[in-house]
């Protein structure tokens, strides 16, 4: 038993390596922030493309749906490795883009951001779609009957309501995204997992990895609780009869 505690939960060891692990975790958080903002925006873009009306936009809708299907099916880890090993070899791309080091972050950081955005953009698009489809048809009709074109109706009427409806599932995706950033450790980004692993291989003590896990728990638990609360509140609203049917 002592051996287990020593291997995984050595408090003294954790304290000794705290700063290092925290630095790795800070990189994890930054990666998460970039990927979160970009995939929220990209996902919305995809969802809107998917909703374009009329025969004219059939090809756009088709390509968008194909994109979403493909990247929901491709494993994120595979995509990360594919991007990180493939893009640097594309000589026709200028080196500053091919091997980016923006904001003082190493290139694996940006390959990771790209892969996460591509994949989570597809996930987010599905979340937005659920929200858009949950807005009653009458809302679009009312907006159109007032002279708004599709774009304005989406922007001022549909999307604000859709986002309100899927806030909780969106937070869930963001939580999963945070955990999935750890996959970027395989392309040598010194985030929390790789940091812990390096420490482990030098000392044969796993407590630094456990410390990393604790840091995730500290950040994610409040987010998860918030999500639960939002879901409960939304259900309360539905149970009360919501907006329209009140006579």
């Amino acid at each position: 038993m002592n051996e287990v505690i020593h291997q995984f939960f050595d408090v003294g060891f954790m304290a000794e390596h705290f700063d290092e692990v925290l630095e790795g975790f800070w990189l994890t958080i930054q990666l998460w922030l970039f990927a979160a903002i970009l995939s929220l925006a990209w996902g919305l873009g995809l969802a809107l493309l998917r909703q374009l009306p009329g025969r004219k936009f059939l090809p756009v809708r088709f390509v968008t749906i194909a994109y979403i299907d493909v990247f929901r099916a491709v494993p994120l880890l595979l995509l990360i490795v594919l991007i990180a090993t493939g893009i640097p070899s594309l000589d026709f791309i200028p080196k500053s883009i091919r091997i980016p080091e923006w904001f003082g972050k190493p290139d694996p950081f940006w390959y990771g951001t790209l892969a996460l955005t591509i994949t989570y953009g597809a996930y987010m698009a599905e979340v937005y779609r659920a929200g858009i489809e949950a807005v009653p048809q009458g809302q679009m009709e009312a907006a159109r009957s007032l002279g708004m074109n599709h774009r304005k109706a989406m922007r001022h009427v549909i999307v604000p309501q859709a986002v309100g409806k899927v806030f909780a599932p969106m937070l869930n995706e963001l939580i999963t995204l945070m955990k999935d950033t750890t996959l970027v450790s395989v392309i040598a980004l010194n985030e929390v997992v790789l940091t812990g692993q390096d420490i482990q291989s030098g000392t044969f003590n796993s407590s630094a990895l456990t410390l990393g896990a604790l840091m995730f728990i500290v950040v994610i638990l409040p987010l998860a609780r918030l999500t639960d609360k939002l879901i409960a509140r939304n259900q309360g609203r539905v149970a009360r009869g919501s907006h329209i049917e009140v006579a």
Partner: peptide, 13 residues
């Protein structure tokens, strides 16, 4: 042309 609907369709937000 203005239109008024059976279900009102006011913008709830």
């Amino acid at each position: 042309v203005g239109m008024v609907f059976q279900q009102f369709n006011l913008f709830p937000h």
